[in-house]
Design a protein around this nucleic acid. Structure first.
Length: 886
RNA sequence: AGGCCCGUAGCUCAGUUGGUUAGAGCGCUACGUUGACAUCGUAGAGGUCAGCGGUUCAAGUCCGCUCGGGCCUACCA
C-alpha cells in the first residue's frame, strides 16, 4: 500500500512522471480507506450523481470515459467543497442487447436459447452479467472513478426489481398501463415488439410498382402505386381523397384485388395525397400504420399475411404461405406481370424503418402488447423544463425536448424476450388477467392459484426510467432516498435524451412528485481525430483502457474534460492526450524542482499573509486567487473546457514559466526574498488541489510529498478543501507592475532575437517606465531582471541615442548592442511594424474624431481608446527612434 | 417535410451582455541542452472570422438571405 510516500517523504523523484507507478496504488488506497463512501443521514449538504448505468454487454468505450470523467470531476469537486457527495454506480441489464450477445455466444457452441429453455438460458445470462460487470468495475477504477461501491446497483437486483413491480402495478391501477391489440413495430429477426424509439429510419433505394386493378362491374381499370406488393395479399380496401374529382364516381363501388380476386371497397379518406402516384392508395390495415388508422376509421377489417417470423402466413394463400416477405415480393411482382396487372415499375427513394438492434426492416404487425400512456407524465416533464425545475445544459436542447414530448405516443413496454423483468401479470386458465406485486397477491385476487405469469419482459428502459430513485431504495422511504433524492446532476449523452432522460423525468415526477435531478448535462459524441464517428466496422475505435495504459488516466481525463464544450462533438486524438501527459510531467517536475530547491524549513501554509512578501510572491498569490475563483465558476456552469484551460495556463504559464523562474535567483541567493519556499509550496498545494478533480492520481501522488501538506488535510488530497478565492491576496497594482516586468522581459528577449544576437553576446538593457510605481518595482527587481534577460547590466531612466527600442505596457525597452547595427532584415521588420502601427493609429484617430462615437459609446470605451492611441503614438516614436540615424 | 447545430490560423477548437490589437493546443520556423522538466525552454511566422446584405458610433458576436457540412424528428403509399 502506498503510504510510504507520505511517511518517509523521500525527496527523490524520478525525472519523469510515470502514471503506471502510482495510479492503481492510489485507487486501491482510496477504496480501502473508504473516502468515497457517502453518509445517510448527514449534517452536510448532499450532492448526488446517479451514474448512467453502463450495459453489461461488454467493455466501456471512450464515450463512457468522457461521461465518467465529468461525473467524477463534479463529485470530487463537491466532495472537496465539503458536500456529502455520492456518485452512485451501477449497471444495466440492457435486455435486447445483452440477450443478443449471449444468443450469439450460444450459437458458436451450436446451442440456442430455445433448446436451452428459459431457466437454463437465464443462468447463462447471469454468468455473462457477472463477467462484464467486473470488467466495467475495473475500467471505472482504472479511470479513477470515485464511486461509492458500497451502494452499487444492478437493474435486475431484488431492490430494483421490486421498484419495477411497484411502478408497474401503480400505473396499471391508475389506468396508465394497459394491454391491448395494436399494430406495433415488430422485429422479425429479434422476434419481439420494439418501441418507436427503437426504429431507425433509413433512406433506401426501392421501387414503386404501379398495379392495375379492375373496378367491379365495369371495364374501368384503376392504377394503384405501392412499394410493398407483397402486402397486397392483405389489402382490404382502396382509399381515395374525398375531394378528388377524378375518382368521385368510384365511391360506393369496389375494386378487384389482382391475383387474389378479393373485393376491395373504395373509401374516401383525407390521408390520401392526391399528388402522389395515381392518387389512389391500397389499404393494408394490418401491415401499415396509416392503413391501420384508415381501417379503424372506416371499419375495414385487416388480414395478417406476414407472421412474427417475417414469413407469409396461411392467410396469404397457398401460393405464398411460408415464403419470406421479400421472396413474396418478388413472387407477387412476377405474378402481377404474368397476369398483366403490372403497369410500370419506377425507382423510388423512400424512408423505411429498421430495427435498431436487429438491423432489418421493421414489420408493422398486429399483436397483443402492454402499453403505457405517458401523455400526462409528458406534460409534467414539459412543465418542469419550462419553469426551470429541470435545467438542460446546454439549454439548446429545450426545443428538442418540447417537440418530442408534445408529440408523444403510448409507449409499448412489453418485449418478447427472456432477459429482463417479467411482467407482473398473471392469467387464469380462462384467460382473466391479474396485475399484482406477486403471484400470491394475484392468486388472492383471482381466487385461484392456477395462474400463469405473462411470459414477456419489460422494455429495458422501463427499469432505467426509475433509476434515480430505485437505486436509493424507492419505494421504501430509506435514509438514502431522503438524503440524496432529488439528485443533483445527470451527465449523459444526448443520444439517450428520449430513451432515458425524458422517461426518468416523467416517472420521477409521477412517483415522487419531484424532478429526479436538478440539471442534465448533455455531452457530445466522442469522435476520432478526423471527426468520424467511432465504429467497429471502421476500425477507428479507441479503447479507453489502452489509452490509460499509454498515457495515464489523468492525461485522458484532462483531455476529455477540456474537449467538452457545450453542444459540440468531441474529436479525440492521441497527440492531444500526449500533450496533456506532458502537462502531467510538467506538474511532476515543478514539484521536483520545489522539493530540491526550497529551504529545509519551508512548509505548506494553510493560509499566508501577503504583507511583508516581495512583488513576485504577491503576484503569484494574486494570480492563484483569481484562478481559483474562475475555475470554481466554470465548474458551476459545467464549462469543463474553460476550467481546464484556466488550470493549464495558470500552472504552466503563471506558475512554471514565470513564478518558478522568478524563484531561481531567490533560492540561489542571487536575489533573495522573504518566504519564497513557503509561498512556492503553498501555491503548489493549492494548484494541486484545484487540479485534483481533473487529475486525481497525479495530484495525490505529488501532494503527498509536499512538506507540511498535513496542515491542509491529514490523510488525502481527496478530502482536502477545494481552494477558494482569497481576496486579501489579490492586488491589481502588484499584477500591473509584474505584468509590466514580464512584458518588458519578453520584449527584451525579442529584441535580442530580432538583432540576431547570440545569448552569449554581452548587452546592456535600458528600461524606462512612465509609471513611477512600475519604475520602482523594476528597480527593486534589478537582479531578477538581469537573471531573466541574461543581460550584462540594466540602466534605468533615459534611453541613449542609438539604442534599439520598443514600448510595451508603458515600459520603454531598449538594447544597446556592442558594435552591432541593424541589418536589412531587422530594418524591414521595423518598417513593416511601423506601417501596421500607423494604420492603427489612423483608425483610432478617426474613431476618436467621430462625434457619434464620442457621444454614444460608454465613457470607459472612449477613455480606453484615448489611452490606447496615446500608447501607440509613444510606441511609434520609440520604434522610429530605433530606426533613427542608423 | 419540419426543427436544431456548425462553418474562426495548416489541423482541432475557444471567443461572455456587440466595445480597444480575434485567442489556445497541436503542427511549422529559428535559436537553445545554463542544475525541475527535450514529455523542455526562448523568440517567431501564420486569420478577408464561409459569402452577400442589413441594424449600430461600433459586428466574429445581433437580424435576413445564399452556399457548404452535420444531427434530430417525421406515416407520403
Amino acid at each position: 500500500i502506498r503510504t510510504e510516500t507520505a511517511e518517509t517523504s523521500t525527496p527523490e523523484m524520478d525525472k519523469r512522471c510515470e502514471p503506471a507507478r502510482y495510479e492503481a496504488v492510489w485507487q486501491r488506497t482510496w477504496r480501502e480507506k473508504g473516502y468515497f463512501t457517502a453518509e445517510a443521514p448527514s449534517q452536510r449538504p448532499s450532492y448526488c450523481i446517479p451514474i448512467p448505468p453502463p450495459n453489461v454487454t461488454g467493455k466501456l468505450h471512450v464515450g463512457h470515459a468522457l461521461q465518467s470523467t465529468l461525473q467524477d470531476l463534479l463529485t470530487r469537486w463537491r466532495r472537496m467543497q465539503g458536500y456529502n457527495a455520492l456518485w452512485l454506480p451501477g449497471t444495466d441489464h440492457a435486455g435486447i442487447a445483452t440477450q443478443l450477445m449471449v444468443e450469439r455466444q450460444l450459437a458458436t457452441e451450436g446451442a440456442s436459447r430455445c433448446a436451452l429453455g428459459r431457466e437454463r438460458f437465464l443462468e447463462r445470462m447471469w454468468e455473462w452479467k457477472e463477467m462484464y460487470h467486473d470488467n466495467i468495475r475495473q475500467q471505472l477504477d482504472l479511470l479513477g472513478a470515485s464511486c461509492d461501491w458500497t451502494r452499487e446497483r444492478f437493474t435486475l437486483d431484488p431492490g430494483l426489481s421490486r421498484a419495477v413491480r411497484e411502478a408497474f402495478v401503480r400505473l396499471y391501477r391508475e389506468g396508465l398501463i394497459s394491454r391491448g391489440e395494436y399494430l406495433v413495430n415488430w422485429s422479425p429477426t429479434l422476434g419481439t415488439a420494439v418501441s418507436d424509439l427503437e426504429v431507425e429510419m433509413k433512406t433506401v433505394q426501392g421501387k414503386l410498382y404501379h398495379v392495375a386493378y379492375a373496378v367491379e362491374g365495369s371495364d374501368e381499370r384503376i392504377v394503384v402505386a405501392t412499394t410493398r406488393p407483397e402486402t397486397m395479399l392483405g389489402d382490404s380496401a382502396i382509399a381515395l381523397h374525398p375531394d378528388d374529382e377524378r375518382y368521385q364516381h368510384l365511391q360506393g363501388k369496389a375494386a378487384i384485388l389482382p391475383v387474389v380476386g378479393r373485393r376491395l371497397p373504395f373509401v374516401a379518406d383525407p390521408m390520401v395525397d392526391r399528388e402522389f402516384g395515381s392518387g389512389l392508395v391500397k389499404i393494408t390495415p394490418f401491415h401499415d400504420p396509416n392503413d391501420f388508422e384508415v381501417g379503424k376509421r372506416h371499419g375495414i377489417p385487416g388480414i395478417t399475411v406476414i407472421g412474427p417470423d417475417g414469413r407469409m402466413t396461411a392467410d396469404a394463400g397457398p401460393e405464398f404461405a411460408g415464403l419470406d416477405r421479400f421472396e413474396a415480393r418478388t413472387k407477387m411482382v412476377q405474378r402481377l406481370q404474368e397476369e398483366g396487372y403490372l403497369v410500370k415499375v419506377e425507382d423510388h427513394v423512400h424512408n423505411v424503418g429498421h430495427s435498431q438492434r436487429g438491423g432489418e426492416p421493421i414489420e408493422p404487425l398486429v399483436s397483443t402488447q402492454w402499453f403505457c400512456d405517458v401523455s400526462g407524465m409528458a406534460e409534467a416533464a414539459l412543465e418542469a423544463v419550462r419553469d426551470g425545475r429541470l435545467a438542460l445544459v446546454p439549454d439548446s436542447w429545450g426545443k428538442t425536448w418540447e417537440h418530442w414530448l408534445t408529440n408523444i405516443k403510448p409507449w409499448c413496454i412489453s418485449r418478447q424476450l427472456w432477459w429482463g423483468h417479467q411482467i407482473p401479470a398473471w392469467y387464469t386458465e380462462d384467460g382473466r388477467c391479474f396485475v399484482a406485486h406477486s403471484v400470491e397477491e394475484a392468486a388472492g385476487q383471482a381466487g385461484t392459484d392456477r395462474l400463469t405469469q405473462d411470459p414477456d419482459v419489460l422494455d429495458t428502459w422501463f427499469s432505467s426510467a426509475l433509476w434515480p430513485f430505485s437505486t436509493l431504495g424507492w419505494p421504501e422511504d430509506t435514509p438514502d432516498l431522503r438524503t440524496f433524492y432529488p439528485t443533483s446532476v445527470l451527465v449523459t449523452g444526448f443520444d439517450i435524451l428520449f430513451f432515458w432522460v425524458a422517461r426518468m423525468v416523467m416517472t420521477g415526477l409521477h412517483f415522487t412528485g419531484e424532478v429526479p435531478f436538478a440539471t442534465v448535462h448533455l455531452t457530445g459524441l466522442v469522435r476520432d481525430a478526423e471527426g468520424q464517428k467511432m465504429s467497429k466496422t471502421k476500425g477507428n475505435v479507441m479503447d479507453p483502457t489502452e489509452l490509460v495504459h499509454e498515457f495515464g488516466a489523468d492525461a485522458l481525463r484532462f483531455t476529455l474534460a477540456s474537449l467538452d464544450s457545450p453542444g459540440r462533438d468531441i474529436p479525440l486524438n492521441r497527440d492531444q492526450i500526449a500533450g496533456y501527459r506532458a502537462f502531467g510531467n510538467k506538474i511532476w517536475n515543478a514539484t521536483r524542482f520545489a522539493l530540491s530547491r526550497i529551504p529545509a524549513d519551508a512548509r505548506v501554509a494553510e493560509s499566508i499573509d501577503p504583507a511583508g512578501l516581495a512583488a513576485p510572491e504577491r503576484w503569484i498569490l494574486s494570480r492563484l486567487s483569481q484562478a481559483a475563483a474562475e475555475v470554481d465558476a466554470r465548474f458551476e456552469t459545467f464549462r469543463f473546457d474553460e476550467a481546464c484551460n484556466r488550470l493549464y495556463h495558470f500552472f504552466w504559464g503563471d506558475l512554471c514559466d514565470w513564478y518558478i523562474e522568478l524563484c531561481k535567483p531567490a533560492f540561489s541567493g542571487e536575489a533573495p526574498r522573504p518566504r519564497v519556499g513557503d509561498v512556492l509550496l503553498t501555491v503548489l498545494d493549492r494548484a494541486l488541489r484545484l487540479l485534483h478533480p481533473v487529475m486525481p492520481f497525479l495530484t495525490e501522488e505529488v501532494w503527498q510529498r509536499l512538506p507540511g501538506h498535513q496542515a491542509v488535510h491529514p490523510e488525502t488530497i481527496c478530502l482536502a478543501p477545494y481552494p477558494r478565492r482569497e481576496e486579501s491576496w489579490e492586488s491589481p497594482e502588484v499584477e500591473a507592475g509584474m505584468d509590466a516586468l514580464i512584458q518588458a522581459v519578453t520584449r527584451a528577449r525579442g529584441l535580442r532575437a530580432d538583432l540576431g544576437l547570440s545569448p552569449k553576446t554581452k548587452i546592456d538593457l535600458h528600461l524606462s517606465a512612465s509609471d513611477a510605481g512600475v519604475q520602482r518595482l523594476l528597480e527593486e527587481q534589478e537582479p531578477l531582471l538581469r537573471f531573466l534577460t541574461r543581460v550584462e547590466s540594466i540602466t534605468f531612466g533615459t534611453i541613449p541615442e542609438g539604442a534599439v527600442r520598443d514600448l510595451v505596457a508603458g515600459v520603454e525597452v531598449a538594447l544597446v548592442p556592442e558594435a552591432a547595427a541593424l541589418g536589412e532584415e531587422e530594418r524591414g521588420r521595423l518598417v513593416k511594424e511601423l506601417d501596421k502601427l500607423a494604420a492603427e493609429i489612423a483608425r483610432a484617430e478617426e474613431r476618436l474624431g467621430n462625434e457619434q462615437f464620442l457621444s454614444k459609446a460608454p465613457p470607459h470605451v472612449v477613455e480606453g481608446g484615448r489611452a490606447r492611441l496615446a500608447e501607440m503614438r509613444e510606441r511609434e516614436a520609440s520604434l522610429k527612434a530605433s530606426l533613427g540615424d542608423r
